[in-house]
Design a protein around this nucleic acid. Sequence first.
DNA 1: CTTCAATTGTAGCCAAAGCTACATGTTAGT
DNA 2: ACTAACATGTAGCTTTGGCTACAATTGAAG
Lengths: 158, 158
Amino acid sequence: MSRKASPVRKQSLHALPTEQAQARRFGKARSARSTAILEDYVELIADLIESTGEARATDIARRLGVSHPTAINTIARLKREGLATARPYRGIFLTEKGDVLARRVRARHRLVLEVLLALGVPHEAAEADAEGIEHHVSEATLKAFSEFLRGSRVKKAS
Amino acid sequence: MSRKASPVRKQSLHALPTEQAQARRFGKARSARSTAILEDYVELIADLIESTGEARATDIARRLGVSHPTAINTIARLKREGLATARPYRGIFLTEKGDVLARRVRARHRLVLEVLLALGVPHEAAEADAEGIEHHVSEATLKAFSEFLRGSRVKKAS
DNA sequence: CTTCAATTGTAGCCAAAGCTACATGTTAGT
DNA sequence: ACTAACATGTAGCTTTGGCTACAATTGAAG
């Protein structure tokens, strides 16, 4: 079937998106997946530094639920990408770039969590799902979320 | 720092979750990520079969925006996991198990999309983000979503 | 019935993200 | 000042999910 590459594939009943549109969407999801881990690390490092004064590799590994070599490997990737630095045996630090990313990610995380809670998702599920969902929320969606929250807060206040 | 493994790490200002809780959440997100691709394939195969009568490897590759060997590799994984079968040069088919998964995934996808739209997310962003978000939505969240939608539909109707 | 282009399959590469096992540093407590 | 326990680092393996390049199969058109 389908000898020629593209000409107007019969769009039927449920109307699939066009190939291009669908490929674009999947591509976005793929790239979000590949940055998700970096974002998790950066966010966690920022949290640890803020709340305990330092971010050590093993603490990070324990909190992520991975082995410490895995954490060290990923931290090496953070360094390669200019998001973090580390003085051996002295802990992990964020670069300026890492810090900027951390702020963005944390704000987004909080917003996603609040929206889930506002929608009536139970606390623990909201916390768990937010951890996965946050990486796939675009700017446009973020904006809609914060407007929705403003609305629902107003409603509650009245 | 932190000679002993766990004793009550000082929970400060922003109150980090406990190590166990956080590790559990990250673990869930990780496993969701690893099944996300399988779910995408199964969903797409079901869509293609329903709307065009068959699912060919190259169509799948084109729609996902990946090379055809990548698609074939992943389809091999689907077969290994008992979700799909393929008769060489004859297209891809879902097993019973694959079909069950496809139904679940499609229902979830639709629900996530509807919620995003109901929250005021623009159409294209909603479609794109849903593609990533859907894989991280738990049963509890799904339930909350469908109740929220019922509510918002009622409101709109009034 | 041949041919040639599209589809499908195979081989072999890469990077990421996980693991276990082992080696090396550090440092708190005696 | 030692030493044991913990933290950190290194080596080497696996799986997943990408890729390109090439080989084989199909089937529509001539």
